[in-house]
Amino acid sequence: MVQRGYEVANLAAPRVREAMRYLNWKPAKVLELKELYEFLLARATEHGSPSLGFRLACERLASSRVVRPGVVKLVERVAAARAGGRAGDVRAGAASADDTADE
């Protein structure tokens, strides 16, 4: 059963990449994720809701035509930006923003 799911995922991946190229979207790289972190950090003190931070992050990525990283990765970035915003430390989440996205 697991093998079948793996085969389906392998068949879908080239189609997803082709759709990304056709629609002019790009994967989330280090630079895009760093810019997203800075965007979230600037808004961390304005908005108290983590769900709003997540929604703002998704909207920012979509407007930049950047494919959203995995949900868990994005939630971790929102949490790091909120922690950095509360502490007033811009470098609090720099390590989180510098790693590459898995998806």
Rank of each mutant, 00 (worst) to 15 (best):
E35Y: 07
E76A: 02
E76T: 09
K73E: 14
G85D: 05
V66L: 00
R43H: 13
F54C: 10
V30F: 06
R55Q: 14
C58V: 12
R68P: 00
G84D: 05
P50W: 12
A80L: 06
E38V: 03
A81D: 06
R55M: 14
F54Y: 15
C58G: 09
E59A: 10
A44R: 02
T45C: 09
S63I: 05
V66T: 13
A87S: 08
V30K: 15
G53T: 11
V75P: 00
E35L: 06
V72W: 00
A83I: 05
A44L: 04
V67Y: 12
L74Q: 09
H47R: 13
R77D: 09
L41W: 12
K34E: 15
V75M: 08
E35K: 01
E46G: 01
K73G: 12
E32W: 01
L33D: 07
A62W: 04
G70C: 08
A44M: 09
S51D: 15
L36D: 10
E59W: 01
G88Y: 04
Y37G: 01
F54I: 08
E59F: 02
E46N: 05
V72P: 00
A87L: 03
K34W: 07
G84M: 03
S64F: 04
A79G: 02
E76R: 13
F39W: 10
G85W: 03
H47I: 09
G48R: 08
L33K: 02
S49Y: 12
L74N: 06
L74W: 07
H47V: 15
S51T: 15
P69D: 13
G84W: 00
L31K: 08
A42Y: 12
V67I: 14
P69I: 03
S51M: 14
S49V: 09
L41A: 01
R77H: 04
A87T: 02
V71G: 13
G84A: 02
P69N: 11
A57H: 11
E32V: 00
C58E: 13
R77M: 10
R60C: 04
G88W: 11
S51R: 15
R86A: 01
E38A: 10
A83H: 03
A62P: 01
A62K: 04
L74H: 09
K29E: 15
V75R: 11
S64M: 12
R60P: 01
A87G: 05
V71Y: 06
S63M: 11
G48I: 10
S64K: 04
P50N: 13
R82L: 04
R68M: 12
V75E: 13
L61I: 09
P69E: 15
L36M: 10
L41C: 05
C58F: 05
